[in-house]
Simulated assay, not measured.
Amino acid sequence: MTNSLRPHGYQRTPLPQESAPTPPSPRADEPGQQATTPPAASPAGQKPKQRDAFFDNAKYLAIVLVAMAHSWEPLTDSSRTAEALYMVVYTFHMPAFIVISGYFSRSFDLRPDRLKRLITGIAVPYVIFEVAYTLFKRWADDDPTYDFSLLDPWYLTWFLISLFVWRLTTPIWKLVRWPIPLALAIATLSAVSPDIGDDLDMQRLLQFLPFFILGLCMKPEHFQMIRRRSVRIASVPIFACALVFAYWAAPRMSSAWFYHRDSVQELGAPPWTGPVMTLALFGCSVVLVSCFFAWVPRRHMWFTVLGAGTLYGYLLHGFLAKGSRFWGWFDDYEWLHKPLGEIAVTIIAATVVTALCTPPVQRAFRFAMEPKMAWAFRKDPAEQARSRTTTAA
């Protein structure tokens, strides 16, 4: 979901209907943000729309996989099995988040209230955590010269700035005739363009773009198709084949391909591999994302409520994930590289990120993740007029 650690409610409800949809909050799709804003006044006798447990379940399970993959990264040099699991998970965990992001961005436009939520829900947390991660790296890695730059996202913050750009361009993608082929063409050109540079982590922003556009083009019936019993059954041998292939490829292929952060030239590959790998990885990711969605529970589970806090778990667990490397935990404790140690690391990672998604943590860090910032914006004249009308009535 992320920069690698390498050098580098909740009742079962149907999916939103396509006809006359209730515009979702621009923060609904981010890993961890609340899917609903304070509900507006509803017509008498009409209940406010409830969240779909399926998407909260999908976000929670994906963030657990993210934390587990980060815990496996230091183990991949000594364990071929860990490397294979790492490669499989990296094939679909971030694409799954980004597809959901695109799906819930379908109704985004440049309306003032949505732009405000875009700023407070994405841009402001990006700035806050870019500063926090910079200070943390200076202290934990004993690197006081590390420079702060909003143009150079560090570690996990690349996703926030990418989501900001993707969503801001949503009205354009809704206008073009063939958005997915166009996004794939842009991703391919990015993969063979080493001169793009590192500003805004542009390689990753452009190479992951097709997944956002795919979600933007999806409709509720597509998710219904994915969740059919036949797809669930087929996903078992598909995942098994993916694991077998990854086990074979682990010593032969660099996992840096799955980060989408470099051009093929920077990976030491010839330019012709750019289109091939872009299309191949996109196809593999779409298949595994579909298999993942097929097994996500549709009903309310004990962890469904945590789906509203996945952005908290995503950003906060980064301090522990990076700290474990800065402080040499995996070097100091050899038993972590044994099978039982690998299992223990996996359980600890899943437990920690689960705790970081809980409501108490959300309340404690809401000032950074979901600041209201009413002082920073002009009041909407139309909203003021409605308030005066309601008061007079």
Rank of each mutant, 00 (worst) to 15 (best):
V231M: 14
T310P: 05
A393W: 05
G32N: 08
D143E: 13
E383Y: 02
D143S: 15
L163H: 06
T145C: 00
T390Y: 11
Y86M: 10
M218Y: 08
A349C: 02
Q34Y: 04
T310Y: 02
A376K: 03
F104V: 02
P360Q: 12
D380K: 08
I226E: 02
S162C: 12
L65Y: 08
F365V: 07
A376S: 11
G307S: 12
L306T: 03
K47F: 00
L340C: 04
D113C: 09
R111V: 06
V287H: 02
P14F: 02
R366W: 00
V286E: 08
P237G: 03
Y86V: 07
I98M: 06
F292N: 04
A393Y: 08
L160H: 06
T120P: 05
D142R: 12
G9T: 07
V286Y: 03
L110W: 15
I122W: 04
R232F: 02
T120E: 05
M87Q: 12
K49E: 15
T310H: 06
A35Q: 02
I172M: 10
R388Y: 04
D262K: 11
Q384T: 10
Q11A: 14
G313L: 04
A374D: 15
D142I: 11
A20P: 01
P95C: 10
F239H: 00
L288M: 10
L168K: 01
A256C: 00
V124R: 03
G309F: 06
D152Y: 11
F92G: 03
L214Q: 00
P270T: 09
R117F: 01
P275L: 10
A41N: 02
I238E: 00
K372F: 01
T22M: 05
R299S: 09
L311G: 14
P381I: 08
M277S: 14
P39C: 01
T390Q: 12
L315D: 09
S263G: 12
F159I: 09
L168G: 03
Q224D: 15
D77V: 06
C357R: 04
P23R: 10
R111W: 05
I98P: 04
A234T: 08
S290T: 15
M301W: 07
S19P: 01
A393Q: 14
Q224F: 00
G307P: 01
E266N: 11
A250R: 12
R252D: 05
V64C: 15
R386L: 13
G102E: 11
D147Q: 14
L311F: 14
A308W: 02
T2L: 11
Y247I: 01
Y133E: 09
K174N: 14
